[in-house]
Design a binder for these strands. Sequence first.
DNA 1: ATTAGGTATAAGGAGTGCTTATATGGTAAG
DNA 2: CTTACCATATAAGCACTCCTTATACCTAAT
Lengths: 301, 301
Amino acid sequence: MVSKLDLYRIFSQVAVSESFSKAAKTLYLTQPAVSQSIMQLEEELEMRLFNRTPKGVSLTREGKLLYDYVHSALNLIDSGEKKMQEFKTLRAGKIAIGVGDTISRYFLLPYLETFHNLYPDIKFKLVNGTTSELCRILKTGEIDVALCNFPIDDPKLKLIVCDEVQDTFVYGEKYHKMFSQPVTFEELVKWPLICLEQSSNSRRFMDDFMAERGIEMAPEFELGSHELLLDFAKINLGIACVTKEFSKNYLESGVLQEVQLMEPIPKRAIGICYLKSVPLSPASTKFVEIVVNKKVDYFLS
Amino acid sequence: MVSKLDLYRIFSQVAVSESFSKAAKTLYLTQPAVSQSIMQLEEELEMRLFNRTPKGVSLTREGKLLYDYVHSALNLIDSGEKKMQEFKTLRAGKIAIGVGDTISRYFLLPYLETFHNLYPDIKFKLVNGTTSELCRILKTGEIDVALCNFPIDDPKLKLIVCDEVQDTFVYGEKYHKMFSQPVTFEELVKWPLICLEQSSNSRRFMDDFMAERGIEMAPEFELGSHELLLDFAKINLGIACVTKEFSKNYLESGVLQEVQLMEPIPKRAIGICYLKSVPLSPASTKFVEIVVNKKVDYFLS
DNA sequence: ATTAGGTATAAGGAGTGCTTATATGGTAAG
DNA sequence: CTTACCATATAAGCACTCCTTATACCTAAT
């Protein structure tokens, strides 16, 4: 095995130039340097690679065959380097993003669109899961970044708050006259409630908040998606605990209305997180930048 | 473009070992050497290739892709080097041999068989031509060696006499009683003669020899192959000028008989020749060795 | 807490690989 | 035939690269 791969780059150039001195010029070397390199290669392979002629050199039968291999190999390396260049300039690549179900629908989409319009060659992989699941698979490397509901307490993760959302309770037409006045939490939970499943971070947030006040929520319905919450409320099956920002359409059109509360519910943070120990790829870096800077292309959202 | 290809060999090993220190051991280097090499590669590509972990390292998404290229490239180089090894040990390769028509039939064949039995993986390319044609295409590189009739006067060619052959005149049954006594050349040329074409070296040799004595040969028949000479003589169309060694079967069986001459015809040399300026390939070297040492496998000839 | 095993960093020295200078050889033109 | 020019080969010296030793730092496991 030839120890010095670099000799092959010289070999290849000489094969093309058919001259030591011409190859030397191309490689910004001197002719003796090339001469010595080829001699070294020939010695290590114990094989004459070039026929020396007064006009230059030409590959021997064996050298020609070696060149075919070497040429392909060098091309492969070049292709690989080009690919890296593309990654660097975000003309190729892939981001694996973990995201909570609710967030993917109402929050992530505009950023994905913005990013995709800027860098159409970057591929996405989206993985859905709860906040804790996402934190786990971040560490396996399956995903590069995760967008999830805070709070998260994990020393290995870098956390960046991107947005704050307001949980709120909404009702449909049937409940209209019953909520003309602000209510307390104690009064509220007596109504039929529509909530997300207990496994979700948003639900847990609200459960914890109520628990601090000694109140227990016993929802009539526990649903799997935020969209269902809104639908259920619309047909007057109860009071839904939803995220205000994700319910804009329903509230603005008047289909649903917010319960006026005596005491505000604190805002809840949504953020992006990734492993502290693993540097982000160029594409992921750019994606994070877009999300934290809220660079949404509003024309598209 | 990464200037130092050797970095890729280290890169590849690290990718396999998934550890700088393990790769270092495999490569008979120290861990810092590997560490620095990878850092250098990463700097030149401006791309993180490995994620460092406390247990070792793992390829980044981008590194993995680069590895696919690099791995293939290194495999190609290895294959090329293996091929060279095969050439060296005559387990692969090709010889292009130029050979006169007559010689190929009566002289070359046993050597080809011997060589082929020793090195069955070497391929042959045979090119027929006259001596002067062969000398010309030797210089073009189309053939590696040539087997032809001497004399040759070319300062660029290395000449090795392999054998001497005796030209002679033969006749068939009809001429039997007319050649009971030795004849002079002057008497001989009065009979109908069967010769090779004037372009052949053997014919020129005989023409020149006669000319020195002021005799001109005016053959009845000028034929393209030695075999035809014998056939024509057999059916009594004249006296054929042939090479004794190549007519053994006809002479021994008594189908043809030699003209007894007053004065002997000098022997003519057959030899192998190749360019002085171009070193022979391993296969060609061995072939020349077999021919000049007359290493014929007699069981086969 | 301590140890073991991993990578990163710093500094020094050996060796390699380049350069300059020169030799050698062949071809083509004078 | 000689000379000049173009190519490669050889020789010697030096700069720089790259590897080594030494050390620091981190994490995980005992």
